[in-house]
Design a binder for these strands. Structure first.
Lengths: 345, 345
DNA sequence: GGCGCTGAATTAACCGATTAAGCTCAGGTG
DNA sequence: CACCTGAGCTTAATCGGTTAATTCAGCGCC
C-alpha cells in the first residue's frame, strides 16, 4: 500500500500542494469550499502527515523519551518503573504523545542517547530518572537545550524542572511514628548511596533522630536488592547495639529483612519492628503484614509528564513537590519490648 | 546549541555535501583521505544524522512500536507487560533500536495508531499483543504492509509471524500431574474467553481431560482480575460436583482463589489443590506456596523482538513456538482426600 | 594526439511537508 | 478606463539528508 501524500490530495482536488497544506492546517489562504473539499479527500484516502517531512520543517515530534539505565531484565522485577510509565502514559495518551523507551548500560551511553535523540530530533523532551550526586546528565542536557524534567528531588537538578515527593517529610513521619511507639534506637537500610534521593532521606533521617534525641542514627547503604536487604538486616540484628526498629528504603529489602528476622529467632513486631518504603501487594501478603510508606508512583509519573509537556510547550514551569509518601501501619510495627536492644538475638 | 548538519561538515572539509554523505555512509566515491577527514570533522563537531531527513529519503527509523490496550493504570499492576518489555528492550538496546510505547482505550484506536505510525513512518514495525478471535488488527496490518509480529499463538495471526509458547503442552503437563496425584475432577478458571490463547488452553484442557477419562472438564471464563478469580472459585467450591483441583489462568486469580478456599473452610491442598499459571514472587510468598506454571516471559519478548527485526530486515522468518511453561510443584497441590468432591463445602 | 577508462568529486533531483513571496483576477473606486 | 485591493491561488525555497547523473582530471594505450 502506498502512503498517500499531500500531492495525491492536491491532484484529486485540482489545486497545488501549497493550498492543500494551508487547508489541512487551518491556515488562511484558501476558500472555505476548497478547504472542505481538501479535508474530505484527505479523510477519504486516509492521509496522515509524514512526520519526517514535518519534522524537517521544524515541527515537534510529539513524543518524549525515557532512558533507563539498568540491566533490561531487572525492569521486569522492579515494579517502580512500570508504575511510573503507566502514569506517564496516562498523561501522554490523552494528548496523543508517544513514549520512546531505551535501556542502556552506563551513564555515558545514556548521555550519548540524549545527544543522539537531540541531533536526530527524535523526541521533544526527556524524563530523567535516578538522579545521582553531581549527575553529569544535568549539565549535558542543559548544554543541549533539550527539554527535560527530572523525576526526583530538585536538589542537583540544576535549571531543570523536577517532580518528586517530599521524601524528607515522609522519613520524619515514619521516625516520629516509631518514636511514639517507644522506639529509641532506629536503624535504616538505605538504597544506593550516590542517588540524590537517598541523600535526601539520609539527611532527614539523621536530623529527625537527633531532634528526637534518639540513639545514633545508623544507615546501612545497599543496592536495593533482596540480598542486600537481608545482609544489612543480619548485620544490624547481630550488632552489639541492636536497633528495635528498622526502616527500609524499599519493599523488597523489607520483606527480605522480615525473613532474616525470623531465621534469627526474632519475632516481629515483638522483638523488632520493620517499616518498608513503597507499598505493594507483597507488603499485604507477608505475615505479619508490613507497615509501609505508601505513595502513588503513577501519579508522580503523570505529574512529571505534564510538567515536561509544559516545558516543551514553552509554558512557564515550576518544579513540583508532590505529596509525600504516607505511613500505612500494619502488623510489622509495635512497641518495643522493655528489655529489647540489650543483647544478641 | 545549533545542530550540526552535513553542510557544516562539507564547509569545513572543503567538499560538497554529497561527498560528505558518501564518506559518512561508507559508500564508494570518495578518496580514503577525504573520508578520514570528513569522519574526523563529524566526530569533532558532534554530528548526528537528522533522522527526519534520512527518513524522508526512505531510511528506516530504527524503532519499533508497541500498542497496549488497557487502562494505563492497570499496567503498573500487571507484571506481564513489564517483563515482556524488559525482554524486548534487552534485544533492542543491543542493536540501538528504540521502543515506542502507546496506550489506547479501544481496538479501533489501536488500529488508528498503527495507521498513523505507518503514515508517519514513525516505526519500522510493531509487536501485537493479546490477539483476539477474528482480531481486526491482523487484516489491518496485512493491508498496510506494516512489519508486525504477534506475541501470542499463531492461530489467527494470518500471514503475520508469531512468537509464543506452546500453551497446549503446558496445560497437558499440569492436568497429567494432577491426574497422577489422583485427581479425577479438575476445573479451570480461565482468562478472557475471546483471547486466542485462552481458546488454545481451553481446547487443550478439554482434550486432555477427555483423553484421561476425567470428569466433565469445566472452564469458567473470567477477566483475569482477583475478584473474577475469587468469584469463580466460590462458584466451583459451592457447586454440586465440587472439583478436587483447580487450574487458574494467572497467578492473581489463583491467590485470590486460595483466600476464598480458606474462607470457605477448605484446607489447601488437603481438601482442594490449586495451580497457578505464571509464577511470581507472590506464588512463593503465600501459604501454602502456590504450585505454578512458570515461563520466562522476558525471553518471549526477546524472541519476538528478534523475529520482528528479522521481518523488518526482510529476512525469511518462521514463527517461533517457544518453550512451554513448565510446572513448579509447591505446597498448594497434593493427592485428593478419598471422600473429596462428594458434598458441599 | 585522440580515445576510452577510472576514480573522485560535484550537481541536482528527490523525499513530503511548510511557508514566504508572487501572481491572477474579480470587484470596487476615482 | 486606469488603478488599487485583497482573496485565493501557485510557485519556489527550505528543512537535511540520499543518490543517480554528470563533470573532470589524470592515465594508459594505440
Amino acid at each position: 500500500m502506498k502512503r498517500p501524500t499531500i500531492a495525491d490530495i492536491a491532484a484529486r482536488a485540482g489545486v497545488s500542494t501549497g493550498a492543500v497544506s494551508y487547508a489541512l492546517n487551518g491556515q488562511p489562504g484558501v476558500s472555505e469550499s476548497t478547504r472542505r473539499r481538501v479535508l474530505a479527500i484527505a479523510e477519504e484516502i486516509g492521509w496522515n502527515p509524514n512526520r519526517a517531512a514535518r519534522a524537517l520543517s521544524g515541527a515537534p515530534t510529539n513524543s518524549i523519551g525515557l532512558v533507563l539505565r539498568r540491566p533490561a531484565r531487572v525492569l521486569g522485577v522492579e515494579p517502580f518503573f512500570m508504575e511510573l510509565i503507566s502514569g506517564v502514559e496516562a498523561e501522554l495518551s490523552a494528548r496523543s504523545f508517544a513514549l520512546t523507551l531505551h535501556v542502556v548500560r552506563d551513564p555515558e551511553s545514556e548521555i550519548a542517547v540524549y545527544r543522539r535523540w537531540w541531533g536526530e530530533r527524535r523526541v521533544d523532551g526527556v524524563l530523567v530518572c535516578d538522579l545521582r550526586i553531581d549527575d553529569p546528565r544535568v549539565p549535558a542536557l542543559e548544554d543541549l537545550g533539550l527539554a527535560a524534567v527530572v523525576v526526583g528531588p530538585d536538589e542537583g537538578a540544576g535549571t531543570l524542572a523536577s517532580a518528586w515527593s517530599d521524601d524528607g517529610a515522609a522519613v520524619v513521619e515514619a521516625v516520629e511514628y516509631l518514636a511514639t511507639l517507644g522506639h529509641r534506637s532506629i536503624a535504616r537500610v538505605g538504597g544506593l548511596p550516590d542517588l540524590q534521593h537517598t541523600g535526601v532521606r539520609t539527611a532527614a533521617f539523621t536530623d529527625v533522630c537527633r531532634r528526637l534525641g534518639l540513639a545514633d542514627p545508623v544507615t546501612i547503604p545497599t543496592d536495593y536488592t533482596g540480598e542486600g536487604g537481608a545482609h544489612a538486616t543480619r548485620r544490624l540484628i547481630s550488632s552489639r547495639k541492636r536497633p528495635t526498629a528498622i526502616l527500609y528504603d524499599n519493599d523488597i529489602m523489607a520483606i527480605a529483612g522480615l525473613a532474616v528476622a525470623g531465621e534469627m529467632g526474632l519475632a516481629v513486631p515483638r522483638d523488632i519492628s520493620l517499616v518498608a518504603w513503597d507499598d505493594s501487594v507483597l507488603c499485604q501478603l507477608v505475615r505479619p503484614p508490613m507497615t509501609a510508606m505508601s505513595r502513588d508512583i503513577s501519579a508522580y509519573g503523570a505529574r512529571a509528564a505534564r510538567l515536561l509537556l509544559d516545558v516543551i510547550a514553552g509554558n512557564p514551569v515550576v518544579s513540583i513537590r508532590d505529596e509525600p509518601a504516607h505511613l500505612i501501619p500494619r502488623g510489622s510495627t509495635g512497641p518495643p519490648r522493655p528489655d529489647a536492644g540489650a543483647g544478641r538475638g
